[in-house]
Computed example of a mutant assay.
Amino acid sequence: MQQTQDMSQARTVVLALGSNLGERLDNLQGALDGLFEAPGMELTGVSPVYETVPVGGPPQPNFLNAVVLARTMLEGAAVLERARGIEEALHRLRDVRWGPRPIDVDIITLGQEYSAAPELTLPHPRAHERAFVLRPWADVDPDAELLGHGRVGDLLDAVADQEVLRRDDLPLRLPG
């Protein structure tokens, strides 16, 4: 029987999922399931899936993207370790910067935490420039704010030229 952790002091963590290799929806689902297999994180929201063109990097296939919200007592390093473990399990290679990948799990924010550490910069340094993060995040949390940048809904205006296509035909199942 799994013990229930006291989450009264938990922080909200926002994670962005992306996949453009292999069975993209299955990869997103695998990442979503993997995030909540172990204790320490409580799912509070999952956005719809969006299809987007790649930003930066070499020519590559379109991405499927989603945003996940959770409450956690875990430190940033532990959330990052979980994210990297999921990427490794789904065969993510880091040989080409911004290259194609079966899965990408990015920590966008973790509570009110700021970090300039090279291994984990919080909030994510480019989230405010990316419609593929902002649009699904606004869907799952319309009142969300990105630390240091303002309301997510307002930030969408600056990236209105980035095409994001909502794919209601590709739903994610809630884990469990």
Rank of each mutant, 00 (worst) to 15 (best):
R173M: 12
G34A: 07
L155E: 03
F132S: 10
R135G: 00
D143N: 06
V105T: 07
E129P: 10
L43Y: 07
A78W: 05
P118N: 04
F36R: 00
D33C: 08
E163P: 05
V55L: 15
V13R: 04
T12S: 13
E23G: 12
S115T: 06
W98F: 14
G57Q: 12
P175S: 08
F36H: 03
D143Y: 00
G40H: 03
E23H: 14
V79M: 01
D6H: 06
R84G: 04
M73F: 06
I107A: 09
V68T: 02
D95G: 11
Q3G: 14
N20D: 11
D141E: 14
D157T: 11
I103V: 15
G85F: 02
D26Y: 10
G148C: 10
P142Y: 06
G153C: 13
G111I: 00
D95I: 15
A31Y: 03
S19R: 05
H149Y: 14
R82E: 00
D139A: 15
T52I: 10
E129Y: 13
E129I: 13
L69W: 09
L21I: 11
I107Y: 01
P102F: 07
Q2K: 12
E81W: 04
T44D: 02
A78E: 08
I86F: 04
L122S: 03
I108W: 02
P136Q: 01
Q60A: 03
A70F: 06
P61K: 02
R130A: 06
R94T: 14
N27I: 02
L93G: 11
L35F: 06
S19A: 15
Q9W: 06
M7C: 11
I103T: 08
G150L: 03
E163S: 15
E145Y: 01
V55I: 15
P142C: 01
I107F: 05
A158Y: 08
L35R: 00
G148R: 12
V152N: 00
L64S: 02
Q29S: 05
A138D: 10
A160Q: 07
E75P: 01
V140G: 08
N62K: 13
E129C: 13
D161I: 02
A89V: 06
P171F: 07
D139E: 15
E145I: 11
G40D: 03
L80V: 02
L156K: 03
D95W: 13
H91D: 15
V96W: 10
L32M: 03
A66W: 01
R94P: 09
L90V: 01
G22M: 03
L90F: 01
H128K: 14
H149G: 07
L146R: 05
L172F: 04
G150E: 04
A127G: 15
V14Y: 05
G22T: 12
G18L: 07
L147W: 02
E87K: 05
R101T: 01
L174C: 13
V67C: 06
A16P: 12
L35K: 00
H128E: 09
S19Y: 12
A66F: 04
R167D: 05
A77G: 10
L165I: 15
V140W: 00
H128T: 11
